[in-house]
Amino acid sequence: MDWTALWLSMRLAAWTVAILLPVSILMGRFLAYRQFRAKGLVEALVMLPLVLPPTVFGFYLLVAFGRNSPIGDLWQTLFDHQLLFTFEGLVLASVIFNLPFAIQPAQRGFETIPPEVREAAACCGMSPLASLWRVELPLAWPGVMTAMVLTFAHTLGEFGIVLMVGGSIPGETRTIAIAIYDRVQGFDDRGAAIMSAVLVAISLFTIALTYWLSARMGRRLS
């Protein structure tokens, strides 16, 4: 059992969730309430990582994070080391490829709030921020929470993109999924089996937790 890899995966997932939570709320809310001409295009862009093969997506990230790209160059200047094959690079890639999981369920959550309930919040004297905190977030919470759990679980399981932009550096970029692959390559079937089982258990637990929590929220509102 590669505990370092598991711990790395957990850290990666936690960072991804922490960064994507505000993005999920702001973007989900924006896409749920606003109607604008390019909305379809924006929604398609958000969903793109879902349909692209991880290798294609990973390839573009590899190019975008490389030392010859503006992003890679800026990173090099700011932090004096490259972005590729580092934990930070992995977090950034993870944030990007989780956008559909983080935004879409949150958007659906905000879409369930009737417009007049939001208007009522304003007419009750709530500022937009107060309205978000006291009315919109509690009502959209099942969606936002689903988004975060999916993001967490999906980060644990992502393989292709991590391999493309991170490689397999122990303690830096070797996630549990990569570690399993390495074990299989090294004919360590037992190790691979244990780690796979652990990953299944964690994923199952998080997903089951979401279903349970959202059922509880649903009961509270009806």
């Binding site: 007049e116 309930v117 208007e119 304003a122 709530m126 009315v135």
Partner: peptide
Amino acid sequence: RPHLRRVGVVFQNYALFPH
């Protein structure tokens, strides 16, 4: 802005906060 107007509104379908 609406929240700065001291106005009481009873909406057609009441628009109560369900939670």
